[in-house]
């Protein structure tokens, strides 16, 4: 269903890099990547996953998972943990802890605390653990400043460095105004996946382009990097990838 796109991104392995960042350009939707990665992590036995829902609530990921061929409800509470910020706020209103600003903590500090608590209670019993955060730009809508988001990501990167088999995967819609924050988050990790729109316009058979940048080795004066470009099409029940130039207009 989503193997080809994960293979193209190099995220189909059991052990993932410590920090992976997905940059989403304005006018494209990269949420399918989160669903694809979630499905892949859940299929690995004894691999823990924590899903932090900021852009969509948990039900969305359940529905997307059903279309891609996996049922998140089976794993929830076992290998899958969920922090559903949106549902909490919708259910509890202003009494929600995310809006109360309790003990002078900011939203991002509260979130880091919850993620740390989840990791500490589950990490030891799992072979590997993955934290998926979709989508950092929603934090701006909830009142966080750019600096707070940057500090939040630094905290997460530190968390990933502390533990060997822990991976943090973040996504940020840069909306053409958060480019600097996007750069700062991307530099924390070894893999950056940019979801880009087609420069030539809209095309029925291709939704956009994935640019995958991976740092292979950090030298003293330069890094050894690989860059790969693939085109993608999100269908109802799968995601297809194509090499650039593979698809053209048939006359």
């Amino acid at each position: 269903m989503a193997t080809s796109v994960l293979l193209a991104c190099g995220l189909n392995e059991q052990k993932l890099p410590g920090f992976v960042h997905i940059s989403e350009e304005s006018n494209v939707d990269g949420s399918f990547l989160i669903s694809c990665i979630l499905g892949q992590r859940l299929r690995i036995s004894n691999a823990g996953t924590l899903l932090v829902c900021l852009q969509h609530h948990y039900q969305h990921y359940f529905n997307a998972g059903m279309r891609l061929g996996y049922n998140t409800n089976i794993f929830q509470g076992k290998t899958l943990g969920v922090i559903d910020v949106l549902s909490d706020m919708a259910g509890e209103g202003l009494a929600s802890k995310w809006l109360r600003n309790s003990e002078g903590q900011t939203l991002t500090e509260q979130l880091v605390e919850d993620i740390r608590a989840q990791v500490e209670s589950n990490y030891a019993s799992r072979n590997s653990y993955t934290v998926l955060i979709d989508n950092l730009s929603i934090l701006f809508n909830l009142g966080a400043s750019k600096l707070q988001v940057q500090q939040f990501c630094q905290d997460l990167a530190a968390l990933a460095k502390e533990r060997e088999n822990l991976t943090v995967i973040t996504k940020l819609s840069n909306s053409d105004i958060y480019q600097l924050t996007d750069n700062n988050v991307a530099k924390l990790g070894q893999v950056r996946i940019q979801v880009l729109r087609l420069k030539s316009g809209v095309f029925r058979e291709v939704d956009g382009k994935l640019l995958i940048e991976r740092v292979l080795e950090e030298g003293n004066y330069a890094c050894e990097e690989t860059r790969k470009e693939v085109l993608y099409k999100v269908n109802d029940r799968n995601v297809k990838v194509f090499a650039p130039g593979e698809i053209g207009v048939k006359v």
């Binding site: 750069n183 530099k187 950090e218 003293n220 004066y221 330069a222 890094c223």
Partner: peptide, 13 residues
């Protein structure tokens, strides 16, 4: 040139 990730290593070298 976006070499910030290797900055400490660069100067150390």
């Amino acid at each position: 040139l976006n070499r910030e990730r290797i900055a400490p290593k660069f100067i150390g070298s």
